[in-house]
Amino acid sequence: YWITCCPTCDVDINTWVPFYSTELNKPAMIYCSHGDGHWVHAQCMDLAERTLIHLSAGSNKYYCNEHVEIARALHTP
């Protein structure tokens, strides 16, 4: 949970406070499906809480801010 998930990541173990109602003692993470995949903080991706809950409940693929354009290009005929 205490990783630098992207170039603009500002989640710090020493200063972090809950942002989403689902967070208690660690930041919400979401899995990016690009390549071998990697974890990113939901807050760093500017996800709305409703979107985070929807993604967490389903089996939808998610692409982080850095990889979403690549994913779109691969799926565009």
Results as ranks from 00 to 15, higher is better:
1 Y>W: 06
3 I>A: 10
3 I>D: 12
4 T>S: 11
4 T>R: 12
4 T>L: 10
4 T>C: 08
7 P>L: 10
7 P>A: 02
7 P>V: 12
8 T>K: 08
8 T>I: 01
9 C>F: 01
10 D>W: 14
10 D>L: 15
10 D>S: 08
10 D>Q: 15
11 V>W: 06
11 V>T: 04
11 V>E: 00
12 D>R: 15
13 I>A: 07
13 I>V: 03
13 I>E: 15
13 I>G: 06
14 N>M: 12
15 T>V: 13
16 W>P: 02
16 W>H: 06
16 W>E: 00
17 V>S: 12
17 V>P: 03
17 V>D: 04
17 V>A: 15
17 V>L: 10
19 F>Y: 14
19 F>G: 07
19 F>W: 14
20 Y>A: 02
21 S>L: 02
21 S>E: 15
22 T>Q: 02
22 T>H: 15
22 T>S: 15
24 L>G: 11
25 N>D: 04
26 K>S: 07
26 K>N: 11
27 P>H: 01
27 P>I: 01
28 A>N: 14
28 A>Q: 09
29 M>V: 05
30 I>K: 15
30 I>N: 12
31 Y>M: 12
32 C>H: 01
32 C>L: 00
32 C>I: 00
33 S>K: 08
33 S>L: 09
33 S>A: 14
34 H>I: 05
34 H>W: 06
34 H>A: 11
34 H>P: 01
35 G>W: 04
35 G>S: 07
36 D>E: 04
36 D>G: 11
36 D>Q: 14
37 G>D: 00
37 G>A: 02
38 H>N: 01
39 W>N: 05
39 W>G: 02
39 W>F: 09
39 W>E: 07
40 V>I: 09
41 H>L: 04
41 H>G: 00
42 A>V: 05
43 Q>T: 15
43 Q>P: 01
44 C>E: 00
44 C>I: 00
45 M>I: 02
46 D>V: 14
47 L>M: 14
47 L>T: 09
47 L>F: 07
47 L>R: 03
47 L>Y: 02
48 A>L: 12
49 E>C: 06
49 E>F: 07
49 E>A: 10
49 E>V: 05
49 E>L: 08
51 T>K: 13
51 T>V: 10
52 L>Q: 12
52 L>S: 05
53 I>V: 10
53 I>S: 14
53 I>P: 07
53 I>D: 06
53 I>H: 09
54 H>N: 10
54 H>L: 13
54 H>D: 13
54 H>Q: 05
55 L>I: 10
55 L>P: 05
55 L>E: 10
56 S>Q: 11
57 A>I: 15
58 G>E: 13
59 S>D: 15
59 S>A: 14
60 N>E: 14
60 N>S: 10
60 N>R: 10
60 N>P: 08
61 K>C: 09
62 Y>F: 12
62 Y>E: 02
62 Y>H: 03
62 Y>V: 03
62 Y>D: 02
62 Y>T: 07
63 Y>P: 02
63 Y>D: 06
64 C>D: 00
65 N>Q: 06
66 E>D: 10
66 E>H: 05
66 E>Y: 06
66 E>Q: 10
67 H>G: 08
68 V>K: 08
69 E>Q: 15
70 I>D: 15
70 I>Y: 14
70 I>E: 09
71 A>L: 13
71 A>Y: 15
71 A>N: 08
73 A>G: 15
73 A>Q: 12
74 L>S: 07
75 H>Y: 06
76 T>G: 10
76 T>A: 12
